[in-house]
Design a protein around this nucleic acid. Structure first.
Lengths: 187, 187
DNA sequence: GTCTATATACAGATAGAC
DNA sequence: GTCTATCTGTATATAGAC
């Protein structure tokens, strides 16, 4: 792997662990085994490198979600599978964690991958809910977009609860609750 | 208000806006109109001041939650009132936002107020669900602790979605979805 | 493409005068 | 209790040699 690739990969790891504000160019360089000059040759600066790393992480997350949402089973089963996907909650969400950083959120180029990931995910889930309604599997009197947002929020909030509690169990419990609630949508 | 109080208040504001890692002692001092010497006279350092500020914010948040949860109406109504309480979502949750900070979470004295706020909230909501089950208002076949965790998570995740989207509406939609889902618990 | 040297600013604190 | 001075380390670059 060349220096540029190693820099992006290292940035992805550090951004997940420490966030944007907590990740210094120097730390990225050290983990990548690249010098200052190398980094500033390949990227205009910290924000530019971060944008590249975030875009890659966002693409990977969409792919992981699609692998669980893309089946052809009943809607409820696919939504539950999304909720129950294994997640190391104490590490936080590699995308969602960045919503807390004011500098990242203030920079359109850095917020874009985060925004788009959730936009895609909410839309994807809303489509599955609507499908379940058309098939007569789910109650037709609820707004798919609202259910989708609540499901994604339950997962993101589960990360918050787990890190606050210092325990994976808090995440698992929130997901259990979300699954119970979503099952109440059965027609 | 004396210097000590002004320092705590300023720290509360900055911690909400910028988080722990993003808040410098100097910035707190400037907002408080206090000098370095004053701050280090009243507090051992940044972590100590932060602990005092977080405890005060946590107490205020519990009080705000209790004012909406403490009624004597039906369980569903109180839970919906908690979900629907007005929140400036783009500012983030003054307590929950700190779950994303690795340094804060790693320091037991700093994590404690965050952990305890959510522990209290989850317990309070679980009690309300259990009450609704005893009264025959809610389905008895769901675990109250799981429902409570999912409700709190929906709110915390709503903040994430709103900040990611740069729009309050994302929060409101997640809350709408959560209310719809919780209404499915009616016996 | 990568290296080393250099630069400005800020973080987070300590010391001692008043 | 508060002030000013001072200190060490880090963040985030730029400059120019190789």
């Amino acid at each position: 792997m060349n220096a540029r690739e190693r820099l992006v990969t290292s940035a992805q790891e550090l951004l997940w662990e420490r966030g944007y504000g907590g990740t210094s160019p120097k730390a990225v360089q050290e983990r990548a085994g690249a010098g200052q000059g190398s980094m500033y040759h390949h990227f205009a600066g910290k924000a530019d490198l971060t944008a590249a790393a975030l875009e890659r992480t966002a693409a990977a997350e969409r792919e992981r979600a699609e692998s669980v949402l893309g089946g052809d089973g009943p809607a409820l089963e696919r939504i539950a599978a999304y909720l129950r996907r294994e997640r190391p909650a104490l590490r936080g969400c590699p995308i969602g964690r960045h919503a807390a950083d004011p500098d990242l959120v203030a920079d359109p180029a850095l917020r874009a991958p985060v925004e788009q990931t959730f936009a895609w995910l909410r839309d994807r889930l809303a489509g599955i809910v609507a499908e379940g309604q058309r098939d007569g599997e789910l109650r037709a009197d609820v707004e798919p977009a609202a259910i989708a947002a609540a499901v994604v929020a339950a997962v993101q909030g589960g990360y918050v609860l787990a890190r606050a509690a210092g325990a994976q169990e808090a995440f698992d419990l929130a997901v259990d609750g979300a699954v119970l609630l979503v099952e109440g949508l059965r027609a």
